[in-house]
């Protein structure tokens, strides 16, 4: 019965793996809901800001902030790569990196050098292997990312942009389509792609304190930070969704495997019994 015993231990071990993946699936499901709430909660802030910024841009057309400046030819571009801190979330990160590598190759072919800012330990690990100029990084944001953790890395990139070391900054992150689908996306952060400068329906303006430029500068930095924060939160929701799906399929696979092993085990047991009986019978016949 040695074969049967081995199979039994194997079944037991797969069962405990199944329990773990099942628990992870449920945890991911509840975290995903919270992450989606956070995603929705971060929207009003940046929407409101965009309203004010577009108003300011229209009201003071003579002042152009460098973030809103016209595109200059791309010599060096920056990517803010948003990834998860933990693994076991399906192809979420690798899909994003694959998309990014394609983009980088295209840019390199056009003579543009990339620089990176990584958010999350998976992206950092990737660039350690892949190589690349990592200007700033932040890891261990946890399930509830805070905007203050992002101020530093974003500032590094924005400073580089203002110093004309970078000609554009992109954010690479996953877009949450629904629970089953997450799409890797690369979006342009700065220069801000302005909407059409339509004429104002009627003229009114704010009283500025202290003046329009200061207000606009402060707003723009915060707006960009909030966009990055949104990308991080959205990526968090993607991570949980992707993990939930990955863990569900892992649990299902474990179930299938257990079923198959059970059959093998039953066969092995039956074979052993048959063999024993035939041994007894042939022994009795010999006597």
């Amino acid at each position: 019965m040695a074969g049967a015993k081995e199979i039994r231990t194997k079944i037991a071990s797969i069962k405990s793996t199944q329990k773990i993946t099942g628990a992870m699936q449920m945890v991911a499901a509840s975290k995903m809901r919270k992450a989606q709430d956070r995603m929705a909660a971060s929207k009003p802030y940046s929407e409101k800001m965009l309203q004010v910024i577009s108003h300011l841009a229209r009201a003071t057309p003579e002042y152009r902030h460098s973030f809103m400046a016209v595109e200059r030819p791309h010599k060096r571009v920056g990517y803010i790569v948003v990834s998860s801190d933990r693994g076991l979330c399906g192809g979420l990160n690798s899909n994003l990196f694959r998309r990014l590598v394609i983009d980088i190759k295209e840019k390199r072919a056009a003579g543009t050098e990339p620089a990176f800012c990584t958010i999350g330990s998976k992206a950092l690990g990737f660039f350690k292997r892949f190589g690349g100029d990592v200007k700033a990084q932040v890891t261990n944001l946890g399930d509830k990312p805070h905007i203050e953790d992002l101020i530093g890395p974003v500032k590094v990139m924005l400073d580089a942009f203002e110093a004309k070391e970078l000609d554009a900054i992109y954010v690479a992150s996953n877009e949450f389509v629904n629970t089953m689908t997450q799409r890797p996306m690369i979006r342009q952060l700065v220069p801000i792609i302005g909407e059409e400068q339509s004429a104002m329906p009627y003229h009114w303006d704010y009283i500025y304190e202290p003046d329009a430029h200061t207000v606009l500068d402060a707003l723009l930095t915060r707006y960009i930070e909030s966009l990055v924060y949104q990308a991080v939160v959205e990526n968090g929701a993607c991570e949980q969704a992707s993990r939930m799906v990955a863990m569900k399929s892992a649990s299902d696979n474990a179930g299938d495997l257990i079923g198959e092993l059970q059959l093998v085990y039953n066969k092995a047991r039956q074979a052993a019994i048959t063999q024993e009986i035939s041994e007894i019978v042939s022994g009795a016949a010999a006597v």
Partner: peptide
């Protein structure tokens, strides 16, 4: 703002992020 902001504090955060990288 959810964080305390000042030019030098932001600067420190930026330096920190660079150093970590």
């Amino acid at each position: 703002d959810t964080a305390i902001r000042a030019r030098d504090l932001d600067e420190a955060a930026a330096l920190d992020a660079k150093r970590r990288a």
